[in-house]
């Protein structure tokens, strides 16, 4: 299957997004902010359709809106960032707004489907480079904030006392999470970002109590699930997003069974 350009691009894109999504997802799960990640995808939908409407590449609209949304959630403060009601309402509004943009854009149904459910096989060379560039910047950002982020996530009061600025760290993290969400949406669509962002990370947290190993495992699982999904899509000709979501859920359930069956300490 590697004789086709689109397959090679798809594998490269899945690797890039898997690494970023796994790393960022691990911290989203740790901070109980996964719902914020979910909402960012929907906010991105409005951005992507809006961008299409005014004639820019949807990926830029996606990144722009998720970034604005992430920073806004971060600025609203730690407590609000975990408040599901407010986030849910904004999420619904963003989807509605996206629908309105689509109404004016009168787009082909296939483009809408691609936004909502992803289009991994449609990723071109240019997009791969874009994903790689954004991914590198985001991972660089994570490398910069990982230490205070971990501290502030586990012991917010103590971190603040020791001189960490929790608000700043939170805003920076949600900005990175926004880019990771936008990249995941490019692969599996805004509706299924959980499959790449949360599934592998949650499974990794069940498998290891170590921080470094957990982050690495989350990234590895996300890449593996993306690749397996692609291979399965190639063989069956079913949508790759379906397969990725299936593997994500399957691995999560399996790890639950495995840790559930393991002897209690």
């Amino acid at each position: 299957m590697f004789e086709y350009d689109f397959m090679r691009h798809a594998f490269a894109a899945a690797a890039i997004v898997g690494v970023l999504g796994g790393v960022v997802g691990w911290f989203l799960v740790l901070r109980a902010q996964t719902f914020a990640g979910h909402a960012l995808g929907h906010i991105g939908f409005a951005g992507a359709t809006g961008a299409a409407l005014i004639g820019i590449a949807p990926l830029w609209g996606l990144v722009g809106m998720t970034l604005a949304g992430g920073v806004a959630i971060g600025l609203l403060g730690e407590r609000l960032a975990q408040r599901d009601v407010a986030i849910g309402i904004v999420l619904a509004f963003a989807l509605g707004l996206g629908l309105l943009f689509l109404h004016f854009y009168t787009a082909y149904a296939s483009e809408t489907t691609a936004l909502l459910f992803g289009n991994l096989l449609g990723v071109d060379r240019h997009t791969v480079w874009l994903l790689a560039g954004l991914g590198a910047v985001s991972l660089g950002g994570m490398a910069l904030i990982a230490r205070p982020l971990l501290f502030a996530s586990l012991q917010p009061e103590l971190a603040a006392a020791r001189g960490v600025n929790p608000r700043l760290v939170s805003v920076l993290f949600l900005a990175v999470a926004a880019i990771a969400t936008a990249e995941s949406a490019e692969i599996v669509g805004v509706l299924l970002v959980f499959a790449l962002l949360v599934g592998p990370a949650a499974a990794a947290q069940r498998l290891t109590p170590r921080i470094g190993a957990g982050v690495a495992l989350a990234a590895g699982l996300a890449v593996a699930e993306g690749w397996a999904g692609l291979a399965a899509a190639y063989v069956t000709d079913w949508p790759s997003t379906f397969w990725i979501a299936t593997f994500s859920a399957g691995v999560y359930l399996l790890t639950g069974l495995a840790t559930g069956l393991a002897p209690r300490r």
Partner: peptide
Amino acid sequence: RGEQGLHLRGWDFVAAAGGPRWGLP
């Protein structure tokens, strides 16, 4: 007391409070 990170190893949890520096942990 934080409710976050209960799955983490005690050592990693304690060490997370190392200091306010930027960078990798």
